[in-house]
Computed example of a mutant assay.
Amino acid sequence: MSCQLKTHKYKQADQEHKTHDNILDRNFSPEAPNQVWTGDEPMSVSKAVGVTWLSF
């Protein structure tokens, strides 16, 4: 049995999104160790588990 979710109404943003300076300038080849660290942590939300994070 499948269950269709109700339509979702998006909220209007009450403030602007924050942006950060691009201090790396897409330079991912540092000259020495430990100068640049990058990462990605995708978030997943489900009714059964709640919020989960996938980290590498």
Score class of each variant (00 low, 15 high):
residue 2 S to Q: 05
residue 2 S to W: 01
residue 18 K to I: 14
residue 56 F to R: 11
residue 54 L to V: 13
residue 55 S to V: 13
residue 54 L to P: 00
residue 8 H to T: 04
residue 12 Q to R: 15
residue 27 N to T: 03
residue 52 T to E: 12
residue 34 N to C: 08
residue 42 P to D: 02
residue 51 V to Y: 03
residue 51 V to F: 11
residue 54 L to F: 06
residue 25 D to Y: 03
residue 19 T to R: 09
residue 24 L to F: 12
residue 18 K to W: 07
residue 35 Q to R: 14
residue 13 A to S: 12
residue 45 V to P: 02
residue 54 L to G: 10
residue 38 T to S: 08
residue 10 Y to G: 05
residue 24 L to Y: 12
residue 14 D to Y: 04
residue 35 Q to Y: 04
residue 45 V to C: 13
residue 2 S to I: 05
residue 33 P to D: 07
residue 16 E to V: 06
residue 10 Y to V: 01
residue 37 W to K: 11
residue 29 S to Y: 10
residue 46 S to D: 14
residue 26 R to A: 15
residue 30 P to S: 05
residue 11 K to P: 09
residue 28 F to E: 07
residue 10 Y to S: 09
residue 46 S to T: 15
residue 52 T to A: 08
residue 21 D to N: 05
residue 55 S to E: 08
residue 22 N to R: 12
residue 45 V to R: 02
residue 12 Q to K: 15
residue 22 N to L: 12
residue 34 N to L: 07
residue 30 P to R: 07
residue 48 A to N: 13
residue 40 D to F: 10
residue 6 K to S: 14
residue 7 T to N: 15
residue 9 K to C: 01
residue 34 N to P: 00
residue 36 V to R: 03
residue 13 A to Y: 02
residue 8 H to M: 07
residue 29 S to F: 12
residue 1 M to Y: 02
residue 33 P to F: 02
residue 33 P to W: 01
residue 6 K to F: 07
residue 28 F to M: 14
residue 23 I to P: 00
residue 1 M to R: 09
residue 11 K to Q: 14
residue 39 G to M: 04
residue 29 S to E: 11
residue 41 E to N: 11
residue 46 S to V: 02
residue 30 P to K: 03
residue 31 E to K: 14
residue 8 H to K: 06
residue 52 T to R: 13
residue 45 V to A: 10
residue 46 S to F: 00
residue 31 E to H: 03
residue 11 K to W: 06
residue 56 F to W: 09
residue 21 D to R: 08
residue 5 L to Y: 09
residue 19 T to G: 00
residue 46 S to C: 05
residue 40 D to C: 08
residue 36 V to F: 01
residue 12 Q to F: 09
residue 2 S to A: 09
residue 50 G to A: 04
residue 52 T to W: 01
residue 22 N to S: 14
residue 22 N to G: 03
residue 44 S to Y: 13
residue 44 S to K: 12
residue 55 S to M: 08
residue 31 E to L: 11
residue 45 V to S: 05
residue 14 D to K: 13
residue 15 Q to K: 15
residue 20 H to G: 00
residue 18 K to T: 14
residue 44 S to V: 09
residue 9 K to F: 04
residue 15 Q to Y: 09
residue 53 W to Y: 15
residue 3 C to A: 10
residue 42 P to K: 05
residue 8 H to N: 03
residue 39 G to A: 08
residue 51 V to Q: 02
residue 25 D to L: 11
residue 16 E to H: 08
residue 7 T to D: 15
residue 43 M to C: 07
residue 13 A to D: 12
residue 17 H to M: 11
residue 24 L to K: 00
residue 42 P to I: 03
residue 24 L to R: 06
residue 23 I to G: 00
residue 34 N to R: 09
residue 18 K to A: 14
residue 5 L to F: 13
residue 7 T to E: 15
residue 35 Q to T: 10
residue 38 T to E: 02
residue 33 P to G: 04
residue 27 N to G: 01
residue 8 H to I: 02
residue 52 T to P: 01
residue 28 F to R: 07
residue 8 H to D: 00
residue 7 T to M: 14
residue 42 P to F: 06
residue 44 S to D: 08
residue 4 Q to V: 01
residue 20 H to N: 08
residue 27 N to L: 08
residue 30 P to Y: 04
residue 48 A to M: 11
residue 42 P to T: 03
residue 21 D to L: 11
residue 33 P to H: 03
residue 49 V to S: 06
